[in-house]
Each structure stands twice: as C-alpha cells, then as structure tokens.
C-alpha cells in the first residue's frame, strides 16, 4: 500500500512541483501517471524512493514513512522498489549479466541465489544470449529490458517506471508495456509515468492525471483524455 498524504514539493515560490497531493495505491494495482512535462510525475516517483524529500506531508510505503528513513535504512527501501528510467541508467562498465546481478549483490544475496535468479530474469526479458554484452552494444529496447530485469530481480513490492518508452520506437514500446503487464500479473504494483496516449488507452487501468502539481483526475478504468 502506497499512501501520499497531503504532499507538497516546493523548490521556490515560482517553482512548485507538487501541491497538497493525496492518493492511495493498493497492492497489485497498475497505475498510470499522466500529464504534461513538468506536471510533477517524476517528482512523485522520486519522493517514493526518497531520492527527494517533500516540503510538506508524508509518503508511506506499507505503513513506513519513507521521509524519516536514515541513510542506513534507505538502501532497504530501495530494494523493495524497483525503478526503470527513460535513460535506462545502466552501469556502463558492467555486462548485462553483471548489471542485473549487481542489484542482488548489493542486497547481500548469496552467490548461488544470484546464479539461479539472474538467468531467470534474463529469460523473462528475453536477453539470455546478450548476457555478456556491455550496454553500449545494445539497442534502446534491449537496454530497457535489462533495466527491467534489474528492477525485478529482488522481487520488489513496487515497480516504478519513469517514461520508460520515451526513447523507444513503437515496436520496442509495446514490448516494454507487455513486460510491465507481465510483471504486474506476477504480483508487483506498477506505477507508470508516461505521456504516451496510446499506451494509457490500451492498458485500460487506473489513471491519475497531474497538472501543475495537482491531481486533476483519478479514474479506475481511465483513458488518457477526459472521458
């Protein structure tokens, strides 16, 4: 359960990213966050992994206020929330296999577990034959699939995707969307920030619209545009 309780993020008087946003997301939901650039979608996601802190309000993940976590506790939160980004954010010095394994190594998982789980995850995203390639040898779609494998390897409760298809062509975009649906079917809450109208309309799931830092619409089976 994710709860935003009257959360504001104010950089300065002229730059307000979020304004008294309250929302709840139940486990296993698939939620699309839509809205124009600068509406506050990314800020919302960053607040959930405590990459940024709210100016006001609380952000709760399963009852824990993430804004009060210490530097020591923060890594454990981030292992429960997988993230993928528009620019993939892969470790360029590591191979596909090492990128995925890194998230498990950092979480202190056993060597044997890693050797079992990483090939499974690469199987899910269909990249087994690229396991020894470096990121710069991959296409955009392949990079994003590596990122997804890394994001789900620690079996997180939540997967957050910040414009994951922003740099991809339609074919790759649909592949990523179908992967996200698959991850959601396997029991992970998915939070997708996007401004891709087609994706949102295709998904036919909950849609939260943000505009200038405020929620303007929250519909259970929403479309990109106002119904």
């Amino acid at each position: 359960m994710i709860t935003f309780d009257r959360v504001s993020k104010i950089y300065s008087d002229s730059s307000i990213a979020l304004q008294a946003v309250s929302l709840q997301i139940r486990p296993r939901e698939f939620v699309s966050l839509v809205g124009p650039s600068g509406a506050g979608k990314s800020t919302l996601l960053k607040l959930l992994i405590a990459e940024e802190f709210p100016s006001e309000g609380r952000v709760l993940l399963d009852g824990t206020d993430v804004t009060t976590l210490t530097v020591r506790e923060l890594p454990y939160l981030r292992r429960r929330v997988g993230m993928i980004f528009q620019d993939y954010k892969l470790l360029v010095g590591k191979t596909v296999y090492e990128n995925v394994a890194f998230a498990m190594e950092a979480a202190g998982r056993k060597e044997r577990e890693i050797a079992e789980s990483v090939p499974e995850a690469l199987e899910i995203v269909d990249l087994v034959d690229k396991r020894n390639n470096f990121p710069n040898e991959l296409s955009g779609g392949e990079k994003q699939r590596v990122a997804i494998a890394r994001a789900i390897i620690n079996q997180p409760d939540v997967l957050m995707a910040d414009e994951p298809t922003g740099n991809l062509d339609p074919a790759n975009t649909w592949e990523i969307v179908r992967l996200l649906e698959k991850v959601n079917e396997l029991g992970t809450t998915v939070l997708l920030a996007t401004h891709d109208r087609e994706i949102v309309n295709y998904l036919d799931r909950r849609v939260i619209s943000l505009e200038r830092g405020k929620i303007v619409r929250d519909e259970e089976k929403g479309k990109y545009d106002r119904a």
């Binding site: 530097v71 020591r72 981030r78 470790l91 360029v92 890194f102 950092a106 890394r150």
Partner: peptide
C-alpha cells in the same frame, strides 16, 4: 567519471559502504 554509476548504485539499493 563514475559519478553517474554511483548515483545508479544508490538507486538500486546499494549501501554507501558497498
């Protein structure tokens, strides 16, 4: 040159000492 990597490692949930 590794600053971006450090940022990613943090987001993936690595501790500072790691």
């Amino acid at each position: 040159t590794a600053r971006e990597e450090i940022n990613i490692m943090k987001l993936v949930g690595a501790t500072n000492w790691y």
